[in-house]
Design a protein around this nucleic acid. Sequence first.
DNA 1: GACTGGCACTCTGTCCGCGGGAGTGCCAGA
DNA 2: TCTGGCACTCCCGCGGACAGAGTGCCAGTC
Lengths: 340, 340
Amino acid sequence: MSLDDRKLEVLRAIVEDYVKTREPVGSKALVERHQLGVSSATVRNDMAVLEEEGYIRQPHTSAGRVPTDAGYRLFVDRLTRIKPLSPAERRAIERFMVGVVDLDDVVHRTVRLLAQLTRQVAVVQYPSLSRSAVRHLELVPISTTRLMLVMITDTGRVEQRLVEMPGPVADGDVWELRRRVNEKLAGQKLADTPPLVQKLVDECAPERRGDMVCLATVLLETLVERSEERLALAGTANLTRGGVLDFQGTLRPVLEALEEEVILLKLIGDLEPRTTRVRIGDENEIDNLRSASVVSTGYGPGATIVGGLGVLGPTRMDYPGTIATVRAVARYLGDLLAQN
Amino acid sequence: MSLDDRKLEVLRAIVEDYVKTREPVGSKALVERHQLGVSSATVRNDMAVLEEEGYIRQPHTSAGRVPTDAGYRLFVDRLTRIKPLSPAERRAIERFMVGVVDLDDVVHRTVRLLAQLTRQVAVVQYPSLSRSAVRHLELVPISTTRLMLVMITDTGRVEQRLVEMPGPVADGDVWELRRRVNEKLAGQKLADTPPLVQKLVDECAPERRGDMVCLATVLLETLVERSEERLALAGTANLTRGGVLDFQGTLRPVLEALEEEVILLKLIGDLEPRTTRVRIGDENEIDNLRSASVVSTGYGPGATIVGGLGVLGPTRMDYPGTIATVRAVARYLGDLLAQN
DNA sequence: GACTGGCACTCTGTCCGCGGGAGTGCCAGA
DNA sequence: TCTGGCACTCCCGCGGACAGAGTGCCAGTC
């Protein structure tokens, strides 16, 4: 095993210093700032090994060392001391949430809070529909052949969608459709609805079949396909901290990526329960984000996850602090949702 | 009158060249590239006058000239030749809009289209509620003392809001409330509703007064206060075109401003009908945007304005092209809304 | 065998000085 | 009123010199 404890300690020191100063760190500065108990020459030898193993690298011959993605990875996996939130941060979280009025408000406040605390770009996914339940479905006639379908969920989200019917629909028929649909679907988890929608069509009287099929199609789209799509973003201005240097020259690719909802959803989606995921540089599948790191986690009332949230910043990031903050905010948001 | 035609022509040439090349333009290059019919010495004299009047300036002694905000202003007001859209652009607009599904979709597509065509940051305000009409109001019981109020407008927007009632409300009462509210408000322009809401309360039977007051409060909030607030943004990545140079060093203030909905609404709000507003550099009231220009206009079905849209970019911007595109997109969006 | 002090070497960032070039302002003349 | 010419100014890029930081390696010590 080539990496003994001291070498790991050296790596940690390098990461910490580099994150703090943004400058390649040399052996001499290292022994001055940390109590390693050995001379700079020894540290140099250790550094040579760390470099050989791919954890650090030199920007140029005879410059200090800089952590590689692999170095950050090792740091995050094995060297992170959990950093408790400062009381000030705790208070900020508490204070940020007083007087929320509705779900939109909660999500927007959360994303701003997260951006502000981590001083990074923050993303918060709206509570996913598929894990929440239908509270009520409403059908409103817009014209003779068009209905507006409005779905209200128990997490407080409202989704609407226009339905083009095959022919004119009488008010009484609308009333009947509304009744049947609510009877079958109200109170159900969205994830459980597709077979129920199918049943609705099957059980429908033949003369109404056409209408019901139309409605069912849109229902399925609303219930399933659109269910994950909304999210909120904040803190893009934080990308400019420290010049453009942290992102190898241009913010452009990063800004482009941040505009694509699909990409953002990938970043904070697919979460396993109770874990915080850290993706460092090249570990991101999206090319535009090869010089960025993403820290994300799931949130939800109790143990279930109904959405994700996360933070994006340069690979040169304060991982322990960011991870702690992301977790704390996720927990707080979960609690808030549980109260409703 | 100190500015004769030729001096104006020189100013136009300077603006056009500077926008194209991003480099201070000198007298010699100017006579080479434009048919001014005079020598560079003459142009130099004209430039001296233009500089004295504050329309252009020199970054350093003995460098070329650069337009000032006032110079751009004059250019926009008096020197802009209207530039028709290219056929390619026309086609792009047409193609971009096929297969829209709902209002959200329309707005998002529009904002992307605008960002893409102008290659700048685009902002589109959702159709304002206050100028649209109530299609339907829905009340959904959430718990015994809580109702969800859902409002659907004829522009296809849906707004929801939670109503805390003073005491338990029976289903029949909800039904009755819904009937009365719709009777009075459906079909009305939102701007006309406040007195009608008051009437609703006045005409209400005393035993239901308490419920109605609660509902009326939330109704007014929903109808009036929240009515202007939503918008969509796209193209932030375009800020990075041409390095960070166009924004005197940092994008930071601009990105910060773009995150504030209030600021964005100010940018594209308060529009007069049938005009395109151009705010150049210092003319923007927001300090963060002193190095930016905003081109905005209103849109709506027919002659009424139901919302604004616009574009933000560096003061060094292709004004004629941008103005033409903004107008065209606004007109197209208006037509689209008129069709519904 | 592991660590240390010392030394030579390498590379960067910066400062300096030096043209070349672009552009101006001004003046005298057409 | 316009033009050609001329002297002047200032930026930009280039090359060289230099200080500083950091490394690798080696011989010596515990």
